[in-house]
Design a protein around this nucleic acid. Sequence first.
DNA 1: TCAGCTCACACTTTTGAATAGC
DNA 2: AGCTATTCAAAAGTGTGAGCTG
Length: 704
Amino acid sequence: MLGVDMYPGLALGPQRIGDCFYRDHEPLFPATCDAAASKALPPRLAAPPPVHSEPAPQAQKDDVKMELENSFLWKQFSSVGTEMIITKKGRRMFPGMKLKLSGLNPSLRYILLLDITPVDNSRYRFQGGGWQAVGGAEARLPDRVFIHPDSPATGAHWQSRTISFHYAKLTNNTLDSQGHIILHSLHRYQPRVHVIEARDMLRWGGGQHSFVFPETQFITVTAYQNNKITELKISSNPFAKGFREEGMNSKKQRDARQKRKLAVLTETVDIVNGDPCDSTQLLPHPDTNPAVSATPTADPNTTGADLQALTLASLQAPLPADPTCGFTPDVARFQGTLVPEQPLDLGQAFMASQMPDMGLSMSDGMQEATGSEVTNAIIESSDSLGEGTFSSSFPSAQTSSPSFAPLPQSFPFPASSNDPTSSSSPTLSTPSSTSPSMQSTTFTFPTPPPSNTASPQPLLSPASSPSYHPAAMMSRHTAAQHTSFPPLPCQSQDQMSLLMQQDDALSNNSNNSPTEQNSEAFIYPNPDPTQVNALLAPTQNPTFGASYAFPPHMQNLSFPNMTSSQALHLSNLSHQAQAPFHTPSSLPFQPPSCFSSTPSLPPAAHPQLANPPPSYSSVEFPYRSDMMLHHPSLIPQREPPLPPCLPPSTATTAIYPPFSSYPLRLCQDPHPSLSIPLRHLYRHQHGHSHPQGSFLDVSTRAVF
DNA sequence: TCAGCTCACACTTTTGAATAGC
DNA sequence: AGCTATTCAAAAGTGTGAGCTG
């Protein structure tokens, strides 16, 4: 096992959700559900972060943008309350994260990571048609990061296609050795995507951006709780096609099968008892069907087990339909057993092995697109529903929507969070907690327009005002008991129907402007103190990917035998969310590190809020996932969950914890079937040495 | 008793090896 | 011999529901 332990460097540092893009300048989600929270936010605090005056060396930094291509699908789920199945063996996410990147330096290499962090400290239960916080969250598990299999790849590569993380798997197996992302069931999570510049060997993170799409929040379950979610999954996931109305595994069909089985059993019994329905007519080939050949004989010694065996045998043997007896052939299909996935631990060697290539490639110029770069990549039918269908009806970003309000007590349904007047500053905040090993998550959204009213809208009012009040939504102190997801402005049935139609229309046009289809992310600017500019106003700090000096945390990618200062460190973004409008005194706890230098965020309109998302063609290619990073310890403590019914007045006290960071561990090798760019990375498996440091031996994989 | 979890099941899509044809 | 297209079986991804567990 690799001693892949800590990478104290590469700290993302304090980050915030702030650089969301707006479509049509309209709020995407209904206003808040927590008026109190919004009120608690001083107007000045609601203002976007100031533009940093420090000149940005490179223009790229500000231009890095990410869009969620299948945001429509996500929002469909989000409007109901997304649930993600987690299993011991690992379950894929559906919908998957389908992203579009822009603003990268085409010639630089980047690594894309996906991680999933808890939104709050609560455990949820589905009650009364909605999700309610019922207690404190379980101890935080080691964080794992899913590395996109194409990583590292050039900016040109990432920008030339749709980036999919659908190979990432979620598990509730805390002892998982497959590298899946480990989550607790019945907890609420927020996926995040990180783009890290890997310009060469030991210098990762020349630029680093993190993106959050609030609509991708979900609650983990081991079995679906909400029928609406089940229906959505079945209708949109091709693998569940069999459960559709017309599918062979539909309720109807299953019931029919059940009846047939019962009929067979009954028939068998009848046969044994000399039932008039002559089974011999149904069993023309007794030689090949021992069970059948045996049935005619009403052996008095036949036991219950015998009958069962006979029944099973008869079921397995194709039987001709016999209207008179209600029989229809029902050949049992062979159930393929799952082959245990081989460990996919991506040891440090993986990274180490890549480094030389990366360095070389960089020197050679822009990396050529790989085979997977074929423009006409496969587009998953599963996501087709959501892709390219997002219309202007779904203004993104600011709006953006934290469809899952990080309210411990409730996911407000549309109506409940419709207060258009509430502050729009999207704030995903995880209640801080003192509980060790738990992590506080705080997301800060761009400041919304001033709100006029704090009155929560009625629950489940899809047609409610489209304005979205993130701050309120995020308030964990909301007394609301319903944990429904925040509503989407356009998700009334009529609206949804219309959108679906539009979606269909758009789906037929691959060149539709995704601008109206995609949801852009909330960006977590690079938090490093040295890059305050980026942190405060990413779009205004064109430093990303440029030849700027690597900030301390970016220079810290290291391997076991490297010094701690060289370690790759991916800080927990949940702590990185910058609270633009909260004073340090309101922080539940002090950050373990380093982010004291984080500058306060003065009121200022965020430039990106007005920027319409770029248009992209919807191109996708299959990915093979399987690389995971593991965040071990150094997980900041989280304060205990608040009582379910805390007065609204307390809503804003703990939303902006300082940013802490924790090390990042690599834990997976690429999937054996990995057929893409990363393949070559695993050729180097032993004792790599590099001018700047030695590499790990991949022969042993890091298993966590 | 019951909420939550596990597992086998029957379905589906995806993948890749084998084969055929040029 | 080499390439491409087709076929097919296995693998893998779904939700369901029964049974188990604490």
